[in-house]
């Protein structure tokens, strides 16, 4: 007699999984021409993503620099120098 543990599947459960998964049929099916087209297209898509990302980052950094320099903000603002004078030398 087959003894099942808590996580062991029963035969009808395995059967149900197989029946369910078998019913999943791709609508279009394999398309070799589309695959070849994607293979050719993909490096250019990736290159475009990299170029757009690099350009965006450059614009953000440049804009931040000009805004901070123009409005005297953050580390690009005029630095104040605190002068410590030794009272003993006066």
């Amino acid at each position: 007699m087959k003894v099942y543990g808590k996580g062991d599947p029963l035969d009808h459960e395995v059967q149900a999984i197989q029946t369910e998964v078998s019913s999943w049929v791709p609508g279009r099916g394999p398309d070799w021409a589309d695959l070849q087209a994607r293979v050719v297209r993909e490096p250019f898509v990736r290159l475009r993503v990299y170029l757009v990302s690099a350009a965006t980052l450059t614009v953000i950094v440049a804009a931040a620099y000009f805004v901070m320099a123009t409005f005297d903000l953050g580390s690009l603002s005029t630095q104040t120098v605190v002068e410590h004078t030794n009272s003993a030398t006066r």
Binding site: P26, G27, P30, D31, D34, L35, R38, E42
Partner: peptide, 10 residues
């Protein structure tokens, strides 16, 4: 799933 399958084969 179809789109990802195609991507996987690419």
């Amino acid at each position: 799933a179809e789109d990802l399958t195609q991507e996987a084969f690419v």
